[in-house]
Design a binder for these strands. Structure first.
Lengths: 356, 356
DNA sequence: GTGAAAGCGCTAACAA
DNA sequence: TTGTTAGCGCTTTCAC
């Protein structure tokens, strides 16, 4: 009852030790739950701690042990519900394993990502989950491995760096869904992605983003099987903001060799594409068919509801977390990363091709 | 060139000092950019640091100075684009002021929120921004103030705790939009909120969530001005998950005293309400009018596009960040919190009331 | 089972 | 301007 409210200096082990009439070491052992402590001492220490409302200084603890019981997460765009859901999976799993989670958002900016990784490393997180921006830059990720802390990549593989990756295989579903479009009579199927690239897409262009590469591989495969040519100019990159998305969409639907179906590489692009289509007064799927990656809730609200490619995002987040946690707890043990498959959800946005 | 790759122990000031042939203190001063250091020494130290690729241990630094140059953010639901956008505002502002931002997501769970605040406090963030779950529990928030670190509340006021709040005033816009609905002939205007409550809404029920209270106040005001009764049973709380949203919506549109307009208290509820309306085969705004809080992108995609109440969320995030930063840097100075106003965006989802 | 004392990597008094 | 010496709050030898 001495001083509870506006005390400036924090209560330390030394204070508790004094109050309990034991040595600092014993108090620390009782408080930290390690070493050998007699019941009598433990009780007195705990009582004193309660009395003084002692709170351990986690920073000091981390400095000594090197462990923070925290896992750091770096994502590109937290506004994207895809990552939001993944975060839930991560948080839930981490929490039940006794780990805290702290998140840094990078706005899909590689510089920010580098900073974020540095900050998290500086804060001595025990492990990292990173959904990397697609960029040749990967020094910062390599630095994580060098620091001896486990790293799990989310959504994207990164070339030249050997760590666990949690990502759904996109090749199979891309092939399946392209097939689905081809069967509906589509030959000119456009694919729009945010992926930055200085030059237009050509066959054999090295795609730095693994999920995009897989999507294109799958498409290519389907075209091949159908004996159709895979038209390079139907692949549109650099759809970074809404104005470029609108521009690309308008360009794709005009002219004699206009696309009869559009595939949006993610939910954000989809938003822009659908809006542009509607603004031009075109009706889905009467005038043009549409398919998108990401199964967001709003896709069921449009008329017609949109066909999508869904990933088990929550589970993938959970898997990433348990992967990184297992690596933290057993640095040497072999752990196998689970595989995830995306699925095609047919709703109403794909119809028969209107033109040949 | 001695050992760069798999070094276990980190390089410390002591190592740098030795390499540069100066005292530990001088090395630390040069590295930390404080105190007085001669050019000669600084250069030698910097060179040595570079050579050994020294990275300061931020934890040790924080332990001594008490400052971490980090601000902590706690939000209820990061999947909600509302918070995603706010986060961008916070991050951008913080970054340009030299602060890092770490985020913890609580899933709208008060226990998780309490934990999150504790974790962030334990990590010695310099200040906190919290979008609090609506709950009578507020001890943890009070504890922040007691710790001497600035706290800014986002979106919701919390009773009995005197800190800065960044939130748009909802009363005026609620009044304006209710007025708009009344002018269109609506008398039975339903309002659906996630707010948990053990009993149905009654006039004078104490609403623990300030933004919801404001919305209801605004509605009530508009009804009063129009000389119409504010019907209590049109206010539906506990719309926590999609099944209860659907149930509530179905209930509201049936019977002789069915609602002719529905107002959704946030974008997540809106999703459920619109879906339920569509499933029942009703057409907006022919059969029922609809208005929602939160101006999400997908609201422009439905047929018709939805009328919404928009808040300047990015700016509010930015304001929260600069507020907390100013308090960190000038703990005593008087700072005024900016005010924000929400606006009614009329699109196509409100029509004339079909029934009296 | 207990306690004294030596760290962790850094900043900050205090002298010189 | 420099170096010496204490800390910060905790964990961890190492004796007893």
């Amino acid at each position: 009852m001495s001083n509870s409210s506006t005390r400036r200096r924090d209560v330390t082990v030394a204070d508790v030790a004094k109050e309990a009439h034991v040595s600092k070491a014993q108090a620390a052992r009782a408080l930290g739950g390690y070493g050998a402590v007699s019941d009598d001492v433990r009780e007195r220490v705990m009582a004193a701690a309660e009395e003084l409302s002692y709170r351990p200084n986690e920073l000091a603890r981390t400095m000594n042990t090197g462990r923070s019981h925290t896992i750091g997460v770096v994502v590109g765009d937290i506004e994207n519900p895809h990552f939001g859901l993944a975060m839930r999976g991560i948080s839930d799993t981490a929490k039940s394993a006794g780990f805290d989670v702290i998140l840094i958002n990078t706005g899909e900016d590689i510089t920010a990502e580098i900073d974020a990784v540095r900050v998290l490393l500086d804060k001595r997180v025990d492990g990292l989950i990173v959904a990397p921006v697609s960029s040749p830059e990967n020094q910062h990720l390599r630095r994580v491995s060098e620091s001896g802390r486990p790293l799990v990549l989310f959504d994207r593989k990164v070339a030249g760096i050997n760590v666990d990756v949690v990502a759904a295989d996109m090749t199979a579903v891309a092939r399946e869904s392209t097939n689905y479009l081809i069967k509906a009579g589509h030959k000119r199927i456009a694919f729009i992605s945010t992926l930055r690239s200085d030059e237009p897409y050509r066959h054999g262009t090295a795609i730095t983003s693994s999920p995009i590469a897989e999507r294109l591989d799958g498409m290519s495969l389907a075209f091949e099987e159908a004996g159709l040519p895979f038209l390079e100019d139907m692949v549109q990159l650099n759809a970074g903001d809404s104005s470029s998305i609108a521009r690309i969409t308008r360009k794709l639907v005009h002219g004699p060799s206009a696309a009869t179906a559009i595939v949006a590489s993610d939910g954000l692009i989809a938003l822009g594409v659908v809006e542009a289509i509607q603004e031009m007064g075109m009706i889905i799927p009467r005038d043009i068919s549409f398919l998108m990656y990401d199964d967001f809730s709003w896709t069921r609200l449009t008329a017609p509801p949109l066909s999508v490619i869904a990933q088990p995002v929550y589970d993938m987040g959970a898997a990433a977390a348990s992967l990184v946690i297992r690596r933290i707890q057993h640095p040497t043990a072999a752990v196998e990363s689970p595989t995830f498959t995306a699925t095609l959800v047919k709703r109403g946005s794909v119809g028969a091709a209107t033109r040949p």
